[in-house]
Simulated assay, not measured.
Amino acid sequence: MTAFEVTRGDSPIILGLPHTGTDVPPDIRGRLNGNGLKLADTDWHIHRLYDGLLPDATSVRALFHRYVIDANRDPAGGSLYPGQNTTGLVPETDFDGQPIWNPGAAPDSAEITDRIARFHAPYHAALNAEIERVRAQHGIAIVYDCHSIRSHIPFLFEDTLPDFNIGTNGTTSCDPRVEQAVVDVVRAAPGYSSIVNGRFKGGWTTRHYGRPEAGIHAIQMELAQSTHLATELPPFDYAPQHAEQLRGHLKDILERLSALATTIKH
């Protein structure tokens, strides 16, 4: 099973797509319970949502599902949000806190180590290679990590999630101008809500790669799925009209970041 796919471009922008994959090897799929088999915590249609918005952007997309292993979690197992409900490197529950594995079928530490080698490490080796290629070409690389999540998940957060959730780990993973460029677009988008470093401050990808002093800037965009899905429940259908409206703002973000990159080279 192929762990990832890469589309190379000549822009300083790299799109990370760690959670759009739905591939689950048969030996792992057979151990998921009925709840787990729904694959409900997928970042549904995010690769379609961003497709073609910045034609010369590079993208690195994980093809495996996050229930196999989460490509946006610390391979050492550290929590992104200590003290808060979250899911781990290999989740034991879904975002509602409900089990996803058949009794006794959750992977042990040896299997998790194997999954890191088979899936997590190859994805990040590919992403790192593209970051280094782009930085060598432009003197800068901006990693824009693409995500989505249901807008209402009491197990993870109170109330309803804003539409645009920007994460820069407290403005440490990128130059402040990168963060501000994104903020300027989303705050001017009529009818949408937004927050910076709220419940989602950036996952492991953003925190691990974001080294602005070295010319690598990373930012995470977590979209509420209500912005582009017809329903946040199965079958998680894409809503073309809503999505097209959203795509206009996302295109503006990526174009602004691409233009900004020429002014903040390391």
Score class of each variant (00 low, 15 high):
Gly9Ser: 04
Ser11Glu: 08
Leu17Ala: 05
Thr20Leu: 00
Thr20Phe: 00
Ile28Gln: 00
Gly34Asp: 06
Gly36Tyr: 02
Ala40Lys: 04
Ala40Trp: 00
Trp44Ala: 00
Trp44Cys: 00
Ile46Asn: 01
His47Leu: 06
Arg48His: 15
Arg48Ala: 12
Asp51Cys: 06
Gly52Trp: 12
Gly52Phe: 10
Asp56Ile: 11
Ala57Leu: 10
Arg61Lys: 15
Ala62Arg: 03
Leu63Thr: 12
Arg66Glu: 03
Ile69His: 01
Ile69Gly: 00
Pro75Ile: 08
Pro75Ala: 12
Ala76Ile: 15
Ser79Tyr: 14
Pro82Val: 08
Asn85Val: 03
Thr87Leu: 13
Gly88Glu: 01
Leu89Glu: 02
Val90Thr: 05
Val90Ala: 04
Asp96Thr: 09
Trp101Cys: 09
Asn102Pro: 07
Gly104Ala: 09
Ala106Pro: 02
Ala110Val: 06
Ile112Gln: 09
Asp114Gln: 15
Arg115Pro: 02
Ala117Val: 10
Ala126Tyr: 07
Ala129Ile: 13
Arg135Met: 10
Ala136Ser: 15
Gly139Glu: 03
Ser148Thr: 03
Ser151Ile: 07
His152Met: 10
Pro154Arg: 01
Phe155Cys: 04
Asp159Thr: 05
Leu161Gly: 02
Asp163Phe: 06
Asp163Leu: 13
Phe164Val: 10
Gly167Gln: 01
Thr171Glu: 13
Thr172Ile: 07
Thr172Asp: 03
Thr172Glu: 03
Arg177Met: 08
Asp184Gln: 11
Gly191Leu: 12
Tyr192Asn: 03
Ser193Pro: 05
Arg199Tyr: 15
Lys201Trp: 09
Gly202Pro: 02
Gly203Ala: 14
Trp204Ile: 07
Thr205Arg: 03
Thr206Arg: 11
Tyr209Leu: 14
Gly210His: 14
Pro212His: 06
His217Arg: 09
Ala218Lys: 00
Ala218Thr: 01
Ile219Pro: 01
Ala224Glu: 05
Gln225His: 10
Ala230Arg: 15
Pro235Glu: 05
Tyr238Glu: 07
His242Thr: 06
Gln245Ile: 13
Gly248Val: 02
Glu255Asn: 14
Ser258Cys: 14
Thr262Arg: 14
Thr262Ile: 06
Thr263Asp: 08
Ile264Val: 13
Lys265Met: 05
